[in-house]
Amino acid sequence: MITGMERLLAAVNGKKSDRVPVFCNLFDQGALELGVSLEEYYQRGDLVAEAQIKMRARYGYDNVWSLFYVGKEAELMGCKEILFAKDGPPNVKDFVVKEFGDIEKLVIPDDITAHPAFEEQAKCLKILKQELGGRYPICAYLTGSMTLPVLLMGMEKWMELLFWGPPELKNLLLEKTSDFFRKEIAAFRSLGADILLYSNPYGSMDVIPENFFHQESMVWMKRDLEPGGMAGVVYYCGMARLNGAIPSVIKELGIGTYYLSPFDDLAQGLELVGPQRLSCGVINDIPLIDWSKEEIRSEVKRMMEIGRRSPRFLFGTGVMPLYIPQENILTMLEAAYEYGRF
């Protein structure tokens, strides 16, 4: 039986397997799968790994995630308090940088793999590698240096510092977060993650002005990524549009895979990415909560009809809220398998 990795590699090489690879991001659903609270679930790497393995087997999609929640990165940089919810993803509650003066005190661990907050992530990744390694791609989520300050001080304060604050302080923080990113991506690579989702809304012109993208964001993205190279790196702007950034990212960074936004024009995105690189079309999964079966199938069909024109296309999901009924997840996946068949 063909595996998710074989499907992905076929797409990477511009060849057809049995169908378009389908990357489904189920995170909080893991707690439901195991019948535990979200707070308990996210304390243990073995539970996250077990749920990822079970959900992939049950639904039949092509990837698994070593991601817990985005705030984990803040914990690695000193965050002490996370706000857990019963029906959605955890939030950073305690900002490490409460005032600009805290930036100088911010310490990036020398070895993030030795940090207690990384222990359970490493455990999860090790189990996934043992159980599914080489057969199903293991994805890791890594926040870019220009976006990491949002987790440390909140978006409002970060915007103020970024655009109006003292440049030396802004650069000091970005140097620290970029150092963190380099260590984090190296750690996930060494532990065997196959796909490294470079998440950076500040690499989208929906979030920052175009001139700022070229003059600032690109500089920090290069600093983040160039030392380790672009192997396995996927460009993603956290659901913000990225079509406008694609030509520059290809030219200046040479990233080979693009996780588009549901708000991007898919056909235009594929054209900008080009036939030599991989594109992932992403369904707007928030309306999946309320859509009818027909609406879901129609949207998946539309996307697949566009996507299959490219020799290198994946179908993906965005945030997949816990509120999406299980039958709607199944409807979406069955439609993806059906309309994505070669």
């Binding site: 919810a85 029906d87 959605g88 993803p89 939030n91 928030i286 909560i289 945030v319 809220p321 816990l322 509120y323």
Partner: peptide, 8 residues
């Protein structure tokens, strides 16, 4: 900003 806080 999150689905569960919008719909909760």
């Amino acid at each position: 900003m999150m689905v569960h806080t919008a719909r909760g």
